[in-house]
């Protein structure tokens, strides 16, 4: 059982003093919540669990432990491991100060509609897990469990194509309705491993050309800007869409850009290895220029 292995590994690392903090998941308030936990004493390892509700991407928390004494251990699923690569490539996390414990993941489940305990095997997979193409961690120092087989992913861009098929006015209406519902909570930004700036341009006070107002146009500016900033760096972990309290289709913008990047500049996936360069940070002499 993975949970047992987690606890053993964490206890070992903490007792030997190899790490000072272990980041993992523990059971939350409800049976269908498993929330992040930060353990620094060997006695606390029994809080760790791994079940089908451990959806949180723990990679981002490494940013809080950058200046910690000693190393930090973190459990990473497939998506989380790419998140760590993303942070290391952006110089936000020092790979030598992190101990990665990989867990191959067969997908996390959605929370049930009602609170009483039920058979979790009947619950559907989270949308982001249905579309996952990297269930096995691409980087780790220790692997718990056997690699899972890559699942047959439904057409990655079918959602994007559905929107592309609408008329211009229909598209505009669709996105305006999305932007008008956004409450600018910035949960998408906070959960995203690619959004790792020290101070987000939307939080800055000096940049008076970006607004914090919660109206349709400023929300649109935020959505499009975030998409362009993450372009070529998105690891498709889907956390942004999962954490959005308004249920907005954020991944459909990120996927649109991914589709365009694949079409125009060749297939590329971010965060798979530390050597790859983001698409907008490089160029080829014979890049297409169809409309120019």
């Amino acid at each position: 059982m993975i949970t047992e292995k987690m606890r053993t590994a964490a206890k070992d690392l903490l007792e030997k003093g190899e790490v000072t903090t272990v980041i993992g998941w523990e059971k939350g308030t409800f049976w269908y919540n498993s929330t992040p936990v930060f353990i620094s004493k060997p006695e606390e390892v029994d809080r760790l669990v791994f079940d089908e509700f451990c959806a949180n991407n723990l990679a981002k928390y490494l940013m809080d432990y950058r200046n910690a004494e000693g190393k930090t251990a973190v459990f990473v699923k497939g998506c989380d491991a790419r998140g760590v690569n993303r942070l290391v490539q952006d110089y936000q996390v020092n790979r030598d100060k992190v101990f990665l414990i990989g867990i191959p993941c067969s997908g996390m489940k959605e929370a049930p509609k009602t609170a009483e305990k039920q058979d979790s095997s009947k619950l559907p997979l989270l949308k982001k897990c249905q579309e996952c193409a990297t269930p096995n961690p691409v980087v780790y120092d220790l692997l718990l469990g056997d690699p899972v087989s890559e699942r047959q992913v439904p057409d990655r861009f079918s959602g994007v194509e559905a929107i592309e098929g609408k008329t211009a006015d229909e598209k505009y209406a669709y996105w305006q309705s999305m932007h008008s519902q956004c409450i600018r909570c910035y949960a998408c930004r906070n959960a995203c491993p690619a959004c790792n700036c020290r101070e987000c341009c939307f939080d800055a006070n000096g940049l008076n050309w970006l607004g914090k107002q919660n109206n349709v146009q400023e929300n649109q500016m935020f959505a499009m800007t975030r998409a362009m900033h993450v372009a070529g760096r998105c690891i498709e972990c889907g956390e942004c869409e999962r954490v959005c309290p308004m249920g907005l289709p954020i991944m459909e913008i990120n996927r649109k850009i991914l589709k365009d990047i694949n079409e125009l500049f060749g297939p590329q996936d971010a965060g798979m290895s530390l050597e790859d360069k983001p698409a907008l940070g490089q160029f080829k002499l014979d890049d297409p220029e169809k409309f120019m």
């Binding site: 952006d90 110089y91 936000q92 790792n196 700036c197 020290r198 800055a204 940070g281 490089q282």
Partner: peptide, 15 residues
Amino acid sequence: VDESRCSGCLICKGI
């Protein structure tokens, strides 16, 4: 560079 806000990602260096 506004050093107080720079996160050191160095994407500018490659450009």
